[in-house]
Design a protein around this nucleic acid. Structure first.
Lengths: 216, 216
DNA sequence: TAGATTGTTAATCGATTAACAATC
DNA sequence: TAGATTGTTAATCGATTAACAATC
């Protein structure tokens, strides 16, 4: 739902989304002592076509692969991490410290992708001042002010659908550049803001439809 | 990562994933008393092209739209709900009652999409026998047995990456047809099983890459 | 009627795939 | 060398978009 992005990168969205899968597997191989990898081996593991993996590797690798040998595992991992921003650190805030928001605050895995959630916001008085996953919860009224002061670039929205647009507006007022939206609602934003939707209903749509097709 | 699905429906994956957005908005309009909707109006709201919404509506609607008037809101909602399986009830189990799993167990929104999580599984002794969101937690050893007995078709995986494949195998042994995988790892499955990946890293890849392109 | 919106047919665009020469 | 794997160039395929006649 967010194609109007003038900052589209040279690598396709589809390829970009495959990278974390490759990366995870490459790290596993590296730990197993595998020093070079070839596209056919990776393709087989993921049940993808060789040529697709080859193109993906070519798109991400700064060093050309060696015929017969493939790519140096370490270098490929480094290039992918670079592409995925793992070596940067981007500060983020999260709005909506409910059950989903709380789960994300407790989850430690974002650090590996260069995302550092530094604060959470909510409107429920009983949550304010508390901490979840070591992150303090502030009142949503101070959202844009704090984002602006701390130069936050990423906002994570885990509030109910009805409040999503309001929270979104406050984030943008605070200078947020990219929004990760878990609320099941379309957000209205200026063209220069990236909205990445994580809509579980969209995902369920595929599951349900498949079951209907298959079994009725 | 899951193209080899022989049960592909007539409607494209992309269109299917747009449906929940349309549906949510249509319901909102309906509550506001709007009795008919046209593709151009919806397109404008979502910043999509008119023709794309028109095609999507044509793909889902059982009744043709009326030139000048558009579609009857109620009928369109009904057709979309039908397509998305909202009128069915599919039983599901969830494996991994940690923070993310717990959040999903507590979330009430899946019922609207015909998904009914009837039980949860974990290996941590302190969790077994307890309830989260009204769902009882059983030991993972009984996963395939219970799935088989209760004819469960959907499995939700929220265990750590290392355990994902094991849990997946047990689900398939228990007769599960579709898997919603939140673990950041590729699952190896037979071709007739649908795996829908909800990989947050894949999502973050887009966000991070955008920020790098834009601001370095 | 005039005009908005529809459905249909054809064009475009980009991702995937195929074919093959280059190379270690 | 022979053969596996690479990078390159061209073909295919499907989603999106454009153009336009049909219709209320």
């Amino acid at each position: 739902m967010d194609k109007n992005n003038p900052y589209a990168s040279l690598i396709s969205v589809q390829a970009l989304q495959r990278m974390p899968y490759y990366l995870e597997y490459l790290k596993k191989l590296k730990n197993g002592g595998v020093e070079t990898v070839s596209a056919p081996v990776i393709a087989k593991h993921f049940k993808l076509k060789e040529i697709q993996v080859r193109k993906d590797f070519a798109a991400v690798s700064t060093i050309k692969g060696k015929p017969r040998a493939g790519f140096v595992t370490d270098e490929l991992i480094y290039n992918m991490e670079e592409l995925l921003g793992c070596h940067n650190v981007n500060k983020a805030v999260l709005a909506g410290a409910g059950s989903l928001g709380g789960a994300l605050l407790s989850y430690g895995g974002f650090a590996a992708y260069g995302i550092d959630i530094i604060a959470a916001f909510d409107i429920r008085e009983d949550l304010i001042g508390k901490e979840i996953g070591g992150k303090k919860i502030f009142h949503a009224d101070s959202l844009s002010e704090i984002c602006g002061k701390l130069k936050i670039r990423i906002g994570i929205i885990t509030v109910p659908a009805e409040q999503a647009q309001t929270v979104c507006d406050r984030m943008i007022a605070g200078g947020i550049q990219a929004i990760w939206n878990f609320a099941p609602r379309h957000l209205n934003t200026p063209d220069n803001i990236l909205v990445q939707n994580e809509n579980m209903a969209s995902s369920l749509a595929l599951l349900s439809n498949h079951l209907i097709e298959k079994l009725g």
